[in-house]
């Protein structure tokens, strides 16, 4: 596989992860807990889009938009019904509650849509093949949407009243409330934006692969790795973490360790010494540990005021 192809694969993977890790990190930043239900919310969006696309016959783009909006609203309801009551109990209690919500969401999806693999009603992708790399139109869209989401989020954070209020709540919730910022209202927006992004990310992954009730569980480890690596609570850190992880996973698989370590001739390794593909998720952990050893708060992590 060419060097260019590895870069393309890495960017596609980073874009998918970024959409999911962005929401996870802003929920942590504003609400102060690691939301283990984050990727399961994404799966709810994936299946709502499936329902709209396959059962109601909507095009995939309107189906994805409507499903993401609906999933954001569902997240707000779950926050009001479950997380809000736990907020004063501390981060650990809310985190454990999110585990319960994750299991409930996964099994609800499974009960409604079944355990079998499904696909959206979209045509199979035809790759664009060049001498240096191949890429599908959907993968181009994944990169474009990933970049656009990051840019929009940057604009939201720095050039809107909501963004400024979000940053104020993140820095000091009590001071923000004393200054007249409606904290609960900001939390509502945060849930909607975070889960909306996650839903879009999930739908894109579903389009590129297939749709299964356990797909949220399958993606949660790299999403958490990217978020923590970048510095949990920092949206730019989440984007950077996703990028580092995307590149690490893809490059890690194509390093010939026999050649790098100079042991090919000693041990008569003729086919090269590569990491088996099944260990791809382990690369995430190794990189995470290495980063945290050097920067315990993550790449862009910083101490919170107070």
């Amino acid at each position: 596989m060419s060097f260019t192809q590895i870069i393309i694969n890495s960017i596609v993977r980073a874009s998918e992860l970024a959409l999911l890790s962005l929401g996870l990190t802003i929920v942590y930043d504003i609400l102060g807990f690691a939301n283990f239900a984050h990727t399961e919310f994404a799966v709810v969006g994936v299946y709502l889009a499936l329902f709209l696309n396959v059962s109601l016959g909507l095009g995939i783009v309107p189906a994805a938009i409507i499903a993401s909006v609906l999933t954001g609203i569902i997240a707000i309801f779950i926050d009001r019904g479950v997380f809000k009551k736990m907020r004063s109990s501390g981060g650990i209690i809310v985190m454990v509650t999110s585990l319960g919500v994750a299991i409930a969401l996964r099994n609800t999806v499974r009960a409604i849509w079944g355990a079998s693999a499904r696909n959206y009603s979209v045509a199979l992708e035809k790759p664009i093949i060049t001498p240096y790399f191949r890429i599908t139109p959907l993968q181009i869209w994944i990169i474009v949407i990933g970049l656009a989401a990051m840019f929009l989020f940057h604009l939201l954070l720095h050039y809107t009243k909501l963004g400024k209020a979000m940053r104020a709540v993140s820095d000091d919730p009590e001071l923000a409330q004393a200054s007249g910022i409606a904290t609960e209202s900001i939390i509502t927006y945060v849930w909607f934006i975070a889960i909306g992004f996650a839903s879009v990310g999930g739908i894109l992954i579903g389009m590129e692969t297939y749709i299964l009730p356990y797909m949220g569980f399958a993606i949660i480890v790299p999403v958490f790795c990217a978020t923590i690596m970048g510095g949990i609570g920092n949206p730019y850190g989440a984007m950077l973490g996703a990028l580092v992880l995307g590149f690490a996973e893809n490059f890690g698989l194509y390093i010939n360790f026999g050649q790098v370590l100079g042991i090919e001739k000693i041990f008569h390794i003729s086919k090269g010494l590569f990491i088996p593909t099944g260990y791809k998720p382990a690369i995430s952990f190794v990189i995470l540990i290495l980063v945290l050893l050097v920067r315990p708060r993550g790449i862009l992590g910083k101490k919170k005021a107070g």
Partner: peptide, 29 residues
């Protein structure tokens, strides 16, 4: 939920024939 890495590795040396065994769900992907 993703087998691209396995597929890239499989075709890295352009084999003439690939033996394939997979259960239903995985074969689909």
């Amino acid at each position: 939920t993703d087998y691209r890495a396995e597929i890239e590795r499989l075709f890295a040396k352009n084999p003439d024939v690939v033996f394939f065994t997979a259960y239903g769900t995985e074969s689909k992907l």
